[in-house]
Design a protein around this nucleic acid. Sequence first.
DNA 1: CATTGATTTCAGTAATTTCTGAAATTTGTG
DNA 2: CACAAATTTCAGAAATTACTGAAATCAATG
Lengths: 190, 190
Amino acid sequence: MNLPPLLQSFVLHFGEMGSRWGINRTVGQIYALLYASSKPLCADDIVDALSISRSNVSMSLRELQAWNLVLLKHIPGDRRDYFTTPDDVWQILRTLAEERKKREVDPTLSVLRELLMQSPGSEEERHAQAKLAEMQTLIEQLTKWYDDVKHLETEQLATLLNLGSKVTKLIDTKDRIVSLGRKRKGSKTS
Amino acid sequence: MNLPPLLQSFVLHFGEMGSRWGINRTVGQIYALLYASSKPLCADDIVDALSISRSNVSMSLRELQAWNLVLLKHIPGDRRDYFTTPDDVWQILRTLAEERKKREVDPTLSVLRELLMQSPGSEEERHAQAKLAEMQTLIEQLTKWYDDVKHLETEQLATLLNLGSKVTKLIDTKDRIVSLGRKRKGSKTS
DNA sequence: CATTGATTTCAGTAATTTCTGAAATTTGTG
DNA sequence: CACAAATTTCAGAAATTACTGAAATCAATG
């Protein structure tokens, strides 16, 4: 590995974290490298930078593409493929959320639905189903929220983040003002 | 493995998903078993239910305790430890969020901070730092939101979820009403 | 359409992670 | 405080996952 020290630290860290994030070391390293590099890199650049085999680079890039985490760039007059990452971090966040939901949540939700269709054969199964139903309800609430929020533009998303728990206070404020309006002149609101 | 079919399917699914969630198969299975069982189980119950070694159960329970995902119950007159999961799914969600943040986000944030303290030794490093700074800013916004929201009571949290993207509209509504109020009688609001 | 260069595939190997059984330790009880 | 039961530790085995190099495939160019 032959990189500026700062970049190397970043790349190695992403490699180590990879396993916790559900990707492997190489995939993490390549992502970090592409993210922090000032220009697109081709496969051989990555081989040189990370000292790994060409085939490993090929497979790992494929994996990153399955995650929608890399972009393919073509450089005129060069037949090799060059790669970068999308450069809007908010977009990266959206992609990550989408992909992790797909891999980590959706399969469980579908198993829960399936198991809740069955009729329980014993008291123990009846209890289990009740617990699964609780879990299903929660997951469905979360995914409903996510489906709603994921369409927001970056600016609105940032607003929502900045608001945080103040949202609940805001509701109170609105309710108070609205009910004040009603008392005053019996007007309707949404 | 000797379990009612429904419970068995659930347990096996959690086992398979384990690796995607950053825990291993056994840990996933034990968690699922404890979650869906109607009463606390002791280590030997788990050995019997899942057909795994006693030592594996011991290590996996330790892992689950490190995640704060299991509770220890004592049954009077029985010196063995019995285990359950917290039964409020919202509380489980909070725990999961906290632990995953601790394992998956915090280490990266601290590396980013450290790397951003260094002075860049080249143009390439300067560019890398700019990218790391973007990432840091995003993560800090997200964790700030999380730190704010994590203290909410379940009911408030549910309200926030149900609101979803409507929050942004709510802000508009509030602004409109408030400015209306100002025009009418020059009142102040927070 | 042959040649050359780039990329992918895949079988075998290496590395890592998980699991087990035996031994050691801890904990509660008479 | 000795004993018995329960639990944990840990070295090695088993299973899984990641990586490599050689061969195959694909794609552009003259």
